[in-house]
Design a protein around this nucleic acid. Structure first.
Lengths: 238, 238
DNA sequence: TGGTTTTTGTAGCGATCGGCACGGAATCCG
DNA sequence: CGGATTCCGTGCCGATCGCTACAAAAACCA
């Protein structure tokens, strides 16, 4: 069945991309409808007919961002053969995105709605939930590495995931503050140089778990394990 | 000479503290004059007579924050005997501040004006400059450690400072997203566990610099040095 | 006490906010 | 072609934005 009525005279996807860039650069509340309609080259009734509201447009822009810019990180986590490779590739691609040309610096999910008034706090919480999803995905990749024997079961993957999420969030801020690609690369290098101090390698061959525990007690500790640490609270963010 | 005219009927310092908390929680633009006058329990003409404008009030609130909350970090950097102690103490105190009771989570300087419209971009840049000052102070402490023989001259203190600033910024975001003190402590632990991989210890006694260079070339590298790295651009943020 | 100075609360300024009513225009079906 | 349907641009809505004019009130000095 063909469409009835007068056809839309603008490219909805292109207009959404313009809106995403604006929201990405300024944030949700600091981007006005006048800014949006000017950049999208449409009038406000067209915007409301096509997207519903400013908040709905924002959420759709976040979805576009996740489907395009965010795809690389997910792919890196899934495809890398080891947890260390996965994290290193994720950081390297993040740096490339954060200072890439043709779009604002840093991560949209991190910087898109940090300062919100009380009435728009739902928007801030929406992005916060997406950030938690990133943290969960990273933690799940580390958990997979344990089942695959790539990472020792002693590794405190909650702390490890929270640590590298902190690196990601911090680099977004640095990028927005004008950090160069070289600086961000060096930060990522530092974060990966720490890997050996944080992630325990599994026992080489078929040592028993009690043997691993014995080795853990005796050896000079090159890594932080989660001995005597309570599990993270379920509502904790990272 | 005594003051002329009708005396002020409210406590200026207390009103400024209320304003600081509001700006800290919501950010510059998301905090309206109506919010401010309600919290400060004054009318807008009193606010303008006492502080000049919303932006001037914000800058004064930032000054109050730096003089109170920020004092601990500066003191920690200056007083600690070694660079490692300084950074560790700074991180530990930052965590305590980020989730302390009686005020918003995270750092005001980081979270106070991230999303600003074009006309208020000067406010965002003002806080960005304060963040750069923090980075410079940290770097200066690391440079001091080199002159004191506490840190090897090989250490890439630009990268090291940028790395720990990233940790600080990232933890502010995590705190704002609801991270618990325990999570932030573990992140700080991870960051400090990385110290050995990032900071080179100075040669033990009076080895020559050529001897240190030789050792640097031969040994399995336990640290990131700045060999063959260009110095950071002067306008780089960290 | 009268004059001067400064703060106070009321009331409202022009501008902008997100959002929408409305009539004309453009396309479809029959 | 007529009728139905959908989109477009003009114009404007009530609310809120940061900010201020104004006159009464409260302190000082002479």
């Amino acid at each position: 069945m063909a469409v009835r009525g007068r056809p839309r005279s603008f490219d909805r996807d292109a207009a959404l991309a313009r809106a995403m860039h604006l929201f990405w650069e300024r944030g949700y509340e600091a981007t006005s409808l006048a800014d949006l309609t000017a950049a999208m080259e449409i009038n406000s009734p067209s915007l409301y007919a096509a997207f519903g509201s400013k908040e709905a447009l924002f959420r759709e822009a976040v979805g576009l961002y996740a489907a395009t810019e965010g795809a690389g990180s997910r792919e890196a986590l899934a495809a890398a053969p080891t947890a260390k490779d996965a994290v290193a590739t994720m950081l390297r691609r993040a740096v490339a995105r954060f200072v890439g040309s043709g779009h604002p610096t840093g991560c949209f999910v991190v910087l898109g709605a940090l300062n919100c008034s009380a009435e728009n706090d739902a928007v801030r919480r929406y992005l916060a939930e997406r950030r938690r999803a990133v943290a969960r995905a990273l933690r799940a990749r580390l958990a997979r590495a344990i089942t695959e024997g790539d990472l020792s079961a002693d590794t405190d993957i909650d702390a490890l995931a929270a640590f590298y999420v902190t690196i990601l969030n911090g680099m977004s801020l640095q990028a927005r503050d004008g950090a160069t690609r070289r600086t961000l690369d060096r930060i990522a290098d530092c974060a990966m140089a720490a890997w050996g101090s944080l992630a325990a390698s599994p026992a080489r061959s078929r040592t028993t778990s009690s043997a691993r525990a014995a080795r853990r007690r005796s050896a000079k500790p090159p890594s932080i394990s989660r001995d005597r640490r309570k599990p993270a609270a379920p509502d904790d963010t990272s």
